[in-house]
Write a protein that binds this DNA or RNA. Sequence first.
DNA 1: ACCTTGACGGTTC
DNA 2: GGAACCGCCAAGG
Length: 117
Amino acid sequence: MPNPRYQQIWQTVQLIPKGKVACYGQIADLAGLPGRARLVGKALGKVPKGGWQGKAVPWFRVINSQGKVSFPVESEYFVKQKQLLQDEQVVVLGGRVKLKDFQWQPDLSELLFLLEF
DNA sequence: ACCTTGACGGTTC
DNA sequence: GGAACCGCCAAGG
């Protein structure tokens, strides 16, 4: 079994709606791990293929606080992430997403609803 | 127990 | 914007 903190992070990432993105730090906060953005990065690097508990983990919807994709532009993963985002109408220019337009901003009622399970 | 390593973040220039 | 710098801290070796 994976580290429980990783599970917590994966589950939080699963809440990001299609067509939206979130930052590492934002996920850390929502997961109850404030200040541990880097841990989120580590956890995403260890997402099991095939998802977690039967659901896919949309790792590609997580970018850094500057709105940039956190992979070297020439890397395979950079291309893949960009592709997956664009497939759901998220605009990626120069490796960057306009957070102002695409960042997930759950309101309180939404969070309470999502945590109902 | 010690050390290195991060898919990071905020501040500052 | 972007680069340098420093803080952060659990995981894994």
